[in-house]
Design a protein around this nucleic acid. Sequence first.
DNA 1: AAGCTCAAAGAACAGCTATTCTTTGGGAAC
DNA 2: GTTCCCAAAGAATAGCTGTTCTTTGAGCTT
Lengths: 189, 189
Amino acid sequence: MARKALYSVEEVLSNAIQVFLEHGYNGAVMDEIIARTDFNRRGFYMEFGSKQAFLYRVLEHYIKTHLDPIFVHLEQNAGLPSIHAFFKDYIQLVKGRGCLLVNIVTEMGFDDEPVRDIGRHHLDRLEIGFIGCLEKGLEQHQVKSGLNIEATALQLCNYVQGFAVTAILAGQTDELDLATNALLEPLAA
Amino acid sequence: MARKALYSVEEVLSNAIQVFLEHGYNGAVMDEIIARTDFNRRGFYMEFGSKQAFLYRVLEHYIKTHLDPIFVHLEQNAGLPSIHAFFKDYIQLVKGRGCLLVNIVTEMGFDDEPVRDIGRHHLDRLEIGFIGCLEKGLEQHQVKSGLNIEATALQLCNYVQGFAVTAILAGQTDELDLATNALLEPLAA
DNA sequence: AAGCTCAAAGAACAGCTATTCTTTGGGAAC
DNA sequence: GTTCCCAAAGAATAGCTGTTCTTTGAGCTT
């Protein structure tokens, strides 16, 4: 039999995240993608078919490996501490880099419906997660009583998108960490 | 003497905004830019020099014609109503389209220092504007007394960036208008 | 009206980019 | 050890993209 493939799809996708983060979709050229993913052209097109199909796979992988583990905080629903933990990890993720999903949505969302759908789904999930945590926080008297949960969840969703943009501008400063504290403190009971 | 140029630089820049909003910088091709700006190639390169130099001009024009008139609300500093007016106009601007400045920052910010500088400047201006309005609002008892001004301004800045992203996903719905009300209401006295 | 200058239109070009094809050689199976 | 299959590497290709060049003719000046 023939030799086995040496590359790991997982690893290729992980390496590609960084390239798309740096240059966006249209700015990332195949030569760099091939080089930095430690892949080879033939294998690339056999595995993924096209640059665009590849992007969708990278996005899916980014969500699974980078965003999902952060969402877990919200989904395990421990009230306000979950929200704090979520933001702490999210900021760590986007600091000096931005968020791949947000970057791709702003670059291609107008033209690309699948990308818009993924973005919307992510936003819905975020909102639901926050609502759950705020309800729990209210139950357990962690958050100010009388808090408008729907409006607050919306507010937190906006912080997330806003951080994704600010993270690119703020570089490696801890501007965002300070902001989180300032933003979440008013919620506490 | 020779005939005079027929095109108006102002108009070319205005038309280009739409093209960059739809496809981003790298996704916008010269053929479409030339066609939709009602310009001609030779004139284009005489006037602007290159696609990249053109982008900076378009960005500058976008800020002057689209963002500045909205910032005026904050700078005339009439307290809370100024903030409301700001968001009303901003949402009108970005609805279904997004914000060119935010889109360009997320697409090219990592690679392009001038773009990052413009983005940072815009963010600073926004924060200063909000702080001014909140101070005035506090003076005039329009906003809740004891409000943490710095933190609230930060919060409002995040709403702005967040809206720019959400606007692409929300399309033409009035989701954002409803969100504004929910977000600003808690500030009122 | 005639001549001249430069804007408009778009053809041409050079370099780049996504994709495909060719060659090479590593290693599994016997 | 030999054979053979397929992965790796990268050369080749076709089409696209930013930029420049050529041609044409509109309108200002006299």
